[in-house]
């Protein structure tokens, strides 16, 4: 029996990826041809709506899933992830400050502010995490962080102008469909860069699963690794959150889906596989959003993801396969 990912499994993965990609491009409110002549309405729809949206889903899904994977490895905690530990909330506060106070509508400024917010939240989590010996106390800290940041955002909402408030509420539901071609390409570039950066760290990430002390004794520089993880996870979560809203559960859930699908646990395989699976799940969720919506907006992405992700967390908590050791 082959323990490793077989070529067939990879082929199925890429097949699913390609099928979802093409179906998202071709089908929607109107069905378009991929080979529409330049200047036609179909081509306009492709370039301004479909391509940016599917690219945002791919980058958002892959990026958040990679964040979830490295956070779970770093904290040795199967329930870590950008949304549960408050990193997405931090990014949300960054967005709220600019949007609700009506300071700017520039996506790039919003993204920078979101990145600052998620970096701050992540540093805070890292700073307190060594005080928590158990899986659940770290999660409770993340939950409290979510509450506190949520309260700050509520205060900002109470003070906000009507149109700014409306814009913010839509953003908060999460969607892959708000970005432009430029923002989606920027996200894809960032995720690709982060993924390749992580790939160079795969050995250190493997060693890290043996515990911080052992990792250090085997030549891993804790400090360098910590700051790389903070930078990658913070900037990715910030950028994706600014573009797609505070996307729930994807980062937490994808690594678990991957662990169900394969017995491989080395990061050399987990990193590309998590990115691929994250992109597939995000495009899949976006089909539910598009398909079940009776209106242009469809179902809110976060509602769809929470309906799937919430039970998943409960399943992980109840499952005996992941030892939580409290």
């Amino acid at each position: 029996m082959a323990d490793s990912m077989s070529r067939l499994q990879w082929l199925i993965g890429f097949g699913a990826f390609l099928a979802l990609l093409l179906s998202h491009l071709m089908y929607g409110m109107v069905d378009v041809s991929l080979f529409a002549p330049p200047g036609s309405v179909h081509q306009e729809i492709l370039m301004h709506v479909r391509v940016p949206r599917v690219l945002a889903a791919i980058a958002g899904g892959a990026g958040l899933s990679l964040c979830g994977l490295i956070m779970q490895t770093w904290f040795g905690n199967p329930l870590a992830g950008p949304s549960v530990l408050g990193v997405s909330s931090g990014a949300g506060l960054g967005v709220a400050l600019l949007v609700l106070m009506g300071l700017t509508t520039s996506w790039w400024a919003t993204a920078a502010s979101a990145m600052a917010g998620s970096l701050l939240a992540l540093i805070l989590v890292l700073f307190v995490s060594h005080r928590f010996r158990t899986t659940t106390s770290l999660l409770i800290f993340g939950l409290m962080l979510n509450y506190v940041v949520g309260a700050m955002i509520t205060v900002l909402q109470a003070e906000a102008q009507q149109d700014a408030l409306q814009q913010f509420v839509f953003w908060g539901m999460g969607t892959f469909g708000h970005g432009s071609m430029a923002t989606s390409l920027a996200l894809c570039g960032a995720v690709l860069f982060a993924g390749m950066g992580l790939r160079t760290m795969h050995r250190d990430l493997d060693i890290w699963t043996l515990g911080p002390l052992t990792a250090q004794s085997m030549g891993v520089n804790n400090r360098t690794m910590r700051w790389r993880i903070v930078a990658l996870a913070g900037l990715l979560t910030g950028g994706i959150t600014a573009a797609c809203g505070p996307v729930a559960f994807l980062g937490l859930a994808t690594p678990h889906v991957v662990r169900l699908l394969t017995k491989e646990r080395s990061h050399r395989v987990l990193i590309p596989l998590t990115a691929l699976t994250g992109a597939i799940l995000a495009m899949g969720a976006d089909w539910v959003v598009k398909g079940f919506g009776s209106m242009e907006q469809g179902w809110p992405l976060n509602a769809v993801l929470s309906l799937i992700g919430g039970p998943m967390v409960i399943w992980v908590l109840v499952s005996k396969k992941d030892r939580l050791h409290d």
């Binding site: 199967p78 699963t209 043996l210 646990r265 030892r323 050791h325």
Partner: peptide
């Protein structure tokens, strides 16, 4: 260095 407690959450195979 060998620590007093073995790792409990690593899912790597022994050969890895």
């Amino acid at each position: 260095f060998v620590a007093s407690t073995p790792p409990r959450t690593s899912q790597l195979r022994v050969e890895e």
